[in-house]
Design a protein around this nucleic acid. Structure first.
Length: 466
RNA sequence: GGCCCGUUCGUCUAUCGGUUAGGACACCAGGUUUUCAACCUGGGAAGAGGGGUUCGACUCCCCUACGGGCUGCCA
């Protein structure tokens, strides 16, 4: 058994689409789990729509997602001479021919057929079997001489055997009149030349596979294993589009989802391994198989993503979490934290990582170490600091001055004050929370005091008294 | 229009002819609780519809409905 080679081949027409990211992930998991290679090729043969910025965005997205590719990024456009060469080889083999029909002629043919009630006009070029002696001195395209009868069977690992009737397919153009290759030819040539053994891609290419398989056959090349995966839909079940919100992968990073959670979630979208829900790369690589891919399109479910995200944040070691959080600041276009803020974050991490579902939530809860005196109060915090509460806090202050700065000691001091006023701990914790963080949603007040230290804690309480 | 693909709880899915159709997220109720989150207990919730095949169909076949894809000298 030879080595497995997969590839991801996006068009550089914008950002990295979330569906594309999943396709890339599947290819990556399949190759990496079997000691194979995962290649990256940019399908930039459409010069008008391809931009270097888009290519950069795709590489950036893949890098963030943690999908590393083997070798250099291949530009499909760079292979245009090779593609043309193959087209001419097909010509020489008699599996392709020059077609001098103009676009206007073809258009007119389609119009006429439709007017006659033919719903799907198949253009049959008059040049298919023409005598070269009759060739005019005019621009021409090279068309593949596709089989006119019989059927083409795509043996797909996800969709099963898909049968296409050959007469429904016209002789597709492989080389345009300006000598540039068409995508359908370029993919096949590139996949063959790159040694791709498994083509895992969106099922919008399922029909294309038939024509591509014809090219493989025409050139006498080995057909790769096909696996056409269903597309991802929006939460409403419709095709994913911008109105659904996040379609670009970078938006997910900006929303504060860790890459590991994205990999986990995306892997489970349209693929399953029994009841496994929460897992890391090691398991995913080991478990991933083409057989486990579902046949129906899956919808995006942000609630589930969020849940997985929270689990991953909680399960990640502090040391690994920090660089990700710092990268998040950049992705979310937040000002880079200062050194003291970073230090505070490190000390506070234990108190926030298990209660944050995203990095956005995490830094919101870590606000108490990111802010500095005087603490500004949000509305809810200000509301909890009524005169009664303030006076209770002022009673607390002297006791905190002398207590040993340990969690259980702090707890008993605060509980003691609450008891003295015949109230629950919550009645004291609320205002205390506000005093320390200026917010109503924070980690445990005791954790905050521990992180802040005696001096800062007292200073924040004292600010309130003034 | 034609061709191709799909259809299990609200969502992601398990099941690969014989199960009380399982899990996860979400939701509801209760518990725990210093806020949030987490956690514990319990609950409601599914095989699109119709025909076959079979001793027996969510699983196999056909039809319908619905959804998606393709139908370019785009990728």
């Amino acid at each position: 058994m030879s080595e497995i080679v997969t590839r991801f081949a996006p068009s550089p027409t914008g950002y990295l689409h979330i569906g594309g990211a999943r396709t890339a992930l599947f290819n990556w998991l399949f190759a990496r789990g079997r000691g194979g290679k995962f290649l990256l090729r940019i399908e930039d043969t459409d010069r008008e729509r391809s931009t270097p910025e888009a290519t950069a965005a795709i590489l950036k997205g893949l890098t963030w997602l943690g999908l590393d590719w083997d070798g250099d990024v291949v530009s499909q456009f760079d292979g245009k001479d090779r593609h043309a060469e193959v087209a001419h080889e097909m010509l020489a083999r008699g599996t392709a021919y020059k077609c001098f029909s103009t676009q206007a002629e073809i258009e007119a043919f389609r119009e006429a057929e439709k007017a006659r009630g033919v719903s799907y006009p198949v253009f049959l070029s008059p040049w298919r079997d023409a005598d070269p002696a009759t060739y005019p001195d005019a621009p021409y395209v090279i068309r593949m001489k596709a089989p006119r009868t019989g059927q083409t069977v795509i043996d797909d690992k996800v969709q099963g055997k898909v049968v296409i009737q050959n007469p429904t397919l016209d002789d597709m153009i492989v080389l345009r009149s300006d000598g540039t290759p068409v995508y359908m030819l370029a993919v096949v040539v590139d996949d063959h030349d790159m040694g791709v053994t498994h083509v895992i891609r969106g099922d919008d290419h399922l029909n294309n596979a038939a024509r591509q398989q014809m090219v493989y056959d025409a050139m006498g090349w080995k057909v790769p294993v096909w696996a056409h995966i269903p597309l991802i839909h929006g939460p409403d079940g419709k095709k994913l589009s911008k109105r659904h919100g996040a379609v670009g992968l970078e938006e997910y990073q900006a929303m504060g989802y860790p890459a590991a959670a994205m990999r986990n979630y995306l892997a489970r979208l349209g693929w399953a391994h029994g009841d496994a829900e929460f897992f890391g790369d090691t398991e995913a690589k080991e478990w991933f198989s083409l057989e486990g891919i579902g046949r129906a399109p899956a919808r995006l479910d942000f609630k589930k993503l969020e849940n997985l995200s929270g689990q991953h944040i909680a399960a990640t070691a502090d040391a690994d979490l920090l660089p990700e959080i710092l990268a998040f600041f950049g992705a979310a276009k937040l000002p880079e934290p200062s050194q003291p803020q970073k230090d505070g974050l490190v000390r506070a991490l234990f108190s926030v990582k298990e209660r944050a579902k995203t990095f956005t939530e995490l830094i919101e809860k870590a606000h108490f170490v990111l802010t500095s005196r005087p603490i500004s109060m949000d509305e809810k915090a200000a509301k909890s600091l009524d005169p009664v509460s303030r006076s209770i806090l002022s009673e607390l202050t002297p006791q905190l001055q002398s207590v040993s700065w340990e969690r259980d000691k702090l707890e008993s001091v605060v509980a003691g004050v609450a008891e003295a006023h015949v109230m629950g701990l919550g009645k004291v914790a609320g205002p205390l929370r506000a005093a320390l963080a200026g917010r109503a949603v924070t980690p445990s007040v005791f954790d905050m005091m521990l992180v802040l230290g005696r001096e800062e804690t007292l200073a924040r309480l004292k600010d309130l008294a003034d």
